[in-house]
């Protein structure tokens, strides 16, 4: 495997922010380097001719699979809230949402 100089620049902190991952500076650096390697590797996909490719689900003769509008049993509020890290008054409690 060619572990040479990375060819793509990734803003790891930005991506980690999108994914709501709080990374240490050490992780940002390590992951950054590893991701650069992986991305350099996946560049080889550019060699493939993908003109006129029909993607899955776009083929002809495809049938819908939909659900009829019929009610199914729900969980009880107790069951629903059983796993909540915090709950009160039938609600899931979360840190304050700021709009």
């Amino acid at each position: 495997m060619d572990h040479s100089v990375p060819t793509v620049g990734i803003d790891v902190a930005y991506v980690a922010g999108l994914a709501r991952l709080r990374l240490s500076p050490e992780e940002i650096e390590t992951f950054g380097n590893q991701l650069e390697q992986v991305l350099a590797y996946v560049k080889k996909l550019e060699e493939v001719d993908v003109q006129d490719v029909v993607l899955a689900g776009e083929e002809k003769g495809f049938q819908n699979r939909l659900r009829l509008d019929l009610a199914l049993p729900e969980l009880s509020p107790n069951e629903a809230l059983e796993n909540a890290p915090q709950q009160r008054g039938g609600l899931f409690l979360v840190p304050r949402i700021i709009e």
């Binding site: 009610a71 199914l72 729900e74 969980l75 629903a80 809230l81 008054g89």
Partner: peptide, 26 residues
């Protein structure tokens, strides 16, 4: 509709909190 978009829970306004939920919509 009678039920939610992707699961069979009732689409109903004003029910007891978290009583119209299932694994899918949670």
């Amino acid at each position: 509709t009678a039920t939610k978009l992707f699961c069979g829970c009732r689409n109903e306004f004003g029910a007891e909190p978290n009583s119209r939920v299932c694994p899918v919509c949670l």
